[in-house]
Simulated scan of single mutants.
Amino acid sequence: MMPKTMKTATIFKGPESDPTRVRVEISDIEIPTPKDGQVLIKVIVSGTNPKDWKVPVYMPAFGPHNTGDDVAGIVAAVGKGVTEFKVGDRVAAFHEMRTPFGSFAEYAVAWETTTFSLPDHTSFEEAATIPLAAMTAVVGLHARLNLPSRWETQSAEREAVEKGGIVVYGAAGAVGAFAIKLLSRANLHPIIAIAGKGIPFVETLLDMTRGDVVVDYRKGDDAVVKGIADAVPKGQKLMYAFDTVSSNNSYTNIFKVLDLRGHITFVLPGKKYEGIPETVNDSITTVGSVHGKPDDLWDLGYVYFRLISLGLKQGWFSGHPYEVIPGGLQGVQQGLDNLRDGKNSALKYVYRIEETEGYSG
């Protein structure tokens, strides 16, 4: 029998003495009832993302809230109109950002459209690394850059990538790594991956026989620019770039090689990107679009989450490397602090909710 209350973690902006630090408070609230079209999920493992600490710090207008959006667990109840899932199903889901009942809790809610089934061989820990980051890669590649899927064998965009390649800056991070997996599944090469400490991991994702290369950003900006330029096939133009870092000198390095009529997408909203040539087609990849914000990409999210589920089943898609932070919800503070301090490389932090002190089961 389901309990009436649950533990949840709320993320607050930290003290004035340390304005970029967040504060996590754990409290007991009533377990929500799913609305029409929603699924209530008993959270087994929650993932986390850099925005989980950045939103409270840099977007305080949204107020303190449960910022977790990567859910992996078991369906506990379904709202009216839900036909795809039933109680007891193993699922993962992308919770709608900045809405109540996120994944840092014993139970979370998600829309049916952004929930997907898990095969038995996919652990909840692996599954918790997927939803937000993988869908960010989907939106960036297929909605913002308008790149073709695997079954779209003939298009001007495919021809442009096959001739000049595509840059994935920040390839060891979850969004970058998922982008490489999706590009490979779509048969889009050569991939020019930019990474640092995570290069050994990134190399496992690339196909060097298709012209894929990895460039080490630790060697400095000039070396990065040269590495990108050298990776573009001779006589061709670099027309596409996915900047999953969107900070430091990432995009300025790209612009030194990208064609003046090329396409680039960034991942940080609200940032002022300076020095973009007027003729370059630039965009912001907003993963909230699969929940209708700011544009309506519900169908894209629905289709690709089901494709990801199939990929997990067939083995051509997998989650990101992860580290379990002990303590369940009590561990969220440590995970967010680690993300703020840049301690993670090529991995995602996840939390086993049953390890929470006072867990009700």
Rank of each mutant, 00 (worst) to 15 (best):
I194V: 13
F124D: 10
G68M: 05
A127F: 01
T10W: 03
R352C: 08
R144A: 07
P277M: 05
A174W: 01
R150G: 11
Y304V: 13
E25A: 06
A72R: 00
D222W: 03
T244I: 04
F201H: 12
S318A: 09
V287L: 03
P19I: 05
T285P: 06
A171E: 05
I26G: 04
T114F: 00
S250V: 04
V39G: 06
P19D: 11
Y349P: 14
A110E: 14
N281G: 05
E96Q: 14
G327T: 03
T265M: 12
Y302F: 15
D341L: 10
M2I: 15
M97E: 13
L141K: 04
G79R: 00
P190G: 09
S184K: 12
A61W: 14
I74S: 04
H189I: 13
T279E: 06
V232W: 08
G301P: 09
D207A: 02
V57I: 08
Y107E: 15
V75P: 09
Y58L: 15
D207C: 09
H263E: 09
G47L: 02
F94A: 09
V55Y: 12
T99N: 06
V167C: 04
R352Y: 08
T48H: 02
A241C: 07
V324I: 11
D230T: 10
P321H: 05
A171Q: 02
A156K: 15
F62P: 15
D243N: 10
Y304F: 15
T204W: 04
G288Q: 05
P131F: 00
I11F: 00
D52T: 10
R144C: 14
Y302R: 15
G270R: 06
R218V: 11
F178W: 01
V303I: 14
P148H: 07
R21I: 13
Q38E: 15
T114K: 00
T8L: 08
Y273S: 10
K197S: 13
A105Y: 11
Y322R: 00
W53F: 13
N249V: 01
T204R: 12
L147A: 07
V78Y: 01
S250H: 06
M59A: 14
S247M: 12
D337R: 03
V57H: 12
D52S: 12
E278Q: 10
F12N: 13
D299C: 07
G88T: 00
N338G: 14
L183W: 12
G88S: 01
G342D: 10
G311S: 11
Y349W: 13
I166V: 02
G335L: 01
G227H: 10
K80S: 14
N248R: 11
L260V: 13
E112H: 04
S155I: 02
T33S: 12
G262W: 00
M208K: 15
F85N: 00
G270V: 05
A177E: 10
T10P: 06
Y58G: 15
K181F: 00
D230F: 03
L310D: 14
G73D: 01
L118E: 08
Y351M: 10
Q38T: 05
V78A: 02
L300W: 05
F266N: 10
W151E: 15
V161F: 01
G319C: 03
N344W: 04
I276P: 06
D296V: 08
M2Q: 12
Y169P: 01
P56V: 07
L206Y: 08
L347N: 14
M1Q: 09
A193Y: 11
S318Y: 02
S247Q: 15
Q314R: 14
T114D: 00
K272L: 08
T136L: 02
K80M: 11
F242L: 07
